[in-house]
């Protein structure tokens, strides 16, 4: 679905922010791109819908070379959801806000009506349809931002740091939306440094450090490799730390969930 072929990217012609990035994301996969600040994660994300085009190499989305397509074209396939919903809210009503992208893509008005209504109900925002987006709370605005993108049903949904500033409940809700997207067969790409969130929702992880891909594998492989994460400025999930503490006692290293940790402890006690 998405392919990065030896991509190099530089903003100013002097320093490369992305170096020789090669990646393949298959249809239906849920991938988390992790790395510390400045590693190039957001830069990578912006290549998915053509906001940025590679300086060298190529990015293919659905087989199309992004350098040959406009952002508007690519956005129909890749829905990019930015971190701060306030960067996009401008419409008079919540309805118009959600309809915005659909109108830009020239959907017929009856399709627009159906889609907007569906998505507003799905995200529990239907009661606000005629209200101004500015009347919504922070959490509601975030839902609105996601709804606006899902309204036009892109194949790929990309999130930029979705958990920043979110409380526990909001993160759980986000996790549920991701689950829903997975059941619909969508391809999901997230940029984040929230390891716990990744552990709970993503199967595949790409670790970016200083513009290069230093690891690409299952969440289990990458997130439980404490030394790798620390080497690149990240914190391992708490359960991984626990696994390392108890490694001398037969506790397996590759623990991701609470359930696994519990069972592992029981086994340690049997010894």
């Amino acid at each position: 679905m998405i392919e990065f072929r030896n991509v190099y990217f530089s903003y100013n012609g002097k320093r490369y922010v992305l170096k020789n990035v090669s990646l393949e994301i298959k249809r239906g996969e849920a991938v988390a791109v992790i790395g510390e600040n400045g590693a190039g994660k957001t830069t990578l994300l912006k290549h998915l819908n053509g906001l940025l085009k590679p300086t060298k190499g190529a990015v293919l989305v659905g087989g199309k070379d992004t350098r040959k397509c406009s952002v508007a074209e690519l956005s129909r396939t890749v829905g990019l959801i930015f971190q701060n919903p306030n960067h996009q809210l401008f419409a008079e009503t919540v309805w118009d806000e959600v309809a915005f992208a659909l109108r830009n893509f020239n959907y017929p008005s009856d399709v627009i009506r159906k889609r907007v209504e569906y998505v507003l109900r799905l995200f529990d925002l239907y009661e606000y349809k005629d209200r101004s987006p500015y009347e919504l709370s922070g959490g509601e605005r975030k839902r609105l931002a996601i709804a606006s993108v899902l309204a036009y049903d892109p194949e790929v949904i990309a999130f930029d740091e979705p958990t920043i500033g979110q409380d526990y409940y909001q993160k759980q809700t986000l996790g549920q939306y991701i689950k829903l997207l997975k059941t619909q067969g969508k391809t999901i790409v997230t940029v984040t440094h929230d390891m716990e969130f990744v552990a709970e929702n993503f199967e595949k992880v790409v670790l970016l450090s200083r513009g290069e891909v230093v690891a690409c594998g299952s969440a289990r492989e990458v997130l439980t490799n404490k030394s790798l994460l620390e080497k690149h400025g990240l914190l391992a999930p708490q359960l991984t730390e626990l696994a390392y503490e108890l490694s001398d006692y037969g506790f397996p290293r590759d623990i991701l969930t609470l359930e696994e940790a519990y069972r592992a402890i029981k086994r340690v006690l049997e010894v």
Binding site: L51, V71, A72, S75, F82, Q88, F100, A101, N104
Partner: peptide
């Protein structure tokens, strides 16, 4: 910088 981000966000929604 905020303006750039806003432009990016709106372009990503198909704004011409």
């Amino acid at each position: 910088r905020e303006a750039e981000t806003i432009v990016d966000a709106q372009l990503s929604r198909g704004l011409e």
